[in-house]
């Protein structure tokens, strides 16, 4: 019985192979060290500002951040722009608004209360522009991606507070482009990325060395750009991460002290048991 089932599942597997064509095993993204990891993690403001620059000059051509408001850029726990800077940044974007009192839609300059706009008016427009591919909105991307960490890691991660699977994946994806293996010819519109599920991604390697100018002497490499923009996307996904961890620590201290007091209260009460 077992042999039959096993053979049957092998047969099913064999049948499935041509459909998947040559797709190598997706490697597990490497765990990077991030400033925002761990119980006391905080964002590195300079890194977020660099990451935002990469986003604006490169990724924004295809990806929106429609859940992130410009005012958030000046919020505590974020990239640390001043309100004036955030206003300036907003005003460099054009926002569709309307209808006006004449019933027409119009464009105006962005304000602090606007969301960071998407480059295409709708999904169809994006697909038409990009050979049928759809670049996802990146507002929650660091929570919307991850990878299966497997046993026993998925247990130890709960104790080690590993919550960076998404951002590790983004970094891996941005740096995971390779030449397609021998025997695989890709159409013009597909690119071989070892970390992407199925390895054929529709996103052209988005960034080259020295493409974005860093004024603080940080190396202008693809790896550094990827690291910075991934960190920025983590912030965009979890803008209150710093407050969460800070308050969390206070709550923990309070609860531990409270638990200690409760323990001794309980001991005292029961010691007097008749």
């Amino acid at each position: 019985m077992r042999r039959i089932v096993f053979a049957a599942s092998l047969a099913a597997l064999a049948a499935a192979v041509p459909a998947a064509a040559i797709a190598a095993e997706v490697p597990t993204p490497l765990r990077q060290s991030w400033s925002f990891a761990g119980p006391f993690g905080t964002f590195d403001r300079a890194q977020l500002q660099r990451g935002f620059k990469v986003y604006r000059e490169v990724c924004a051509a295809c990806h929106g951040l429609k859940l992130v408001a410009f005012h958030a850029l000046a919020q505590p726990g974020g990239p640390g722009f001043t309100e004036a800077q955030a206003k300036q940044i907003a005003s460099e974007f054009r926002i569709q608004d309307g209808p006006s009192d004449r019933g027409e839609m119009f464009e105006r300059l962005g304000r602090l209360s606007d969301m960071i706009p998407s480059p295409d008016p709708n999904e169809q427009a994006a697909r038409a522009r990009l050979n049928g591919a759809l670049p996802p909105d990146l507002s929650v991307i660091a929570k919307a991606r991850g990878y299966d960490v497997g046993f026993p890691r998925f247990i130890t991660d709960a104790f080690l507070q590993y919550q960076e699977a998404g951002v590790d994946y983004i970094f891996a994806y941005l740096t995971g482009y390779e030449n397609a293996p021998a025997g695989v010819t890709l159409p013009e519109t597909q690119f071989w990325n070892k970390y992407f599920a199925g390895q054929r991604t529709a996103m052209r390697p988005p960034i080259q060395k020295d493409q974005v100018e860093y004024t603080d002497g940080t190396p202008q490499t693809v790896e550094q750009y990827s690291r910075d923009v991934a960190a920025f996307l983590m912030w965009a996904t979890e803008p209150h991460l710093e407050a969460r961890k800070r308050i969390g620590f206070q709550v923990m201290i309070f609860l531990l002290v409270f638990a200690g007091l409760m323990y001794f209260t309980k001991k005292k009460v029961w010691a007097a048991a008749h």
Binding site: G248, V251, M262, T265, K266
Partner: peptide
């Protein structure tokens, strides 16, 4: 009461440190 506070420590661990 003591057990509840211990349980809340567990809840807080998830909420504040590994919410997802």
């Amino acid at each position: 009461g003591f057990a509840l506070v211990c349980f809340l420590i567990l809840l807080a661990w998830f909420v504040f440190y590994i919410p997802n």
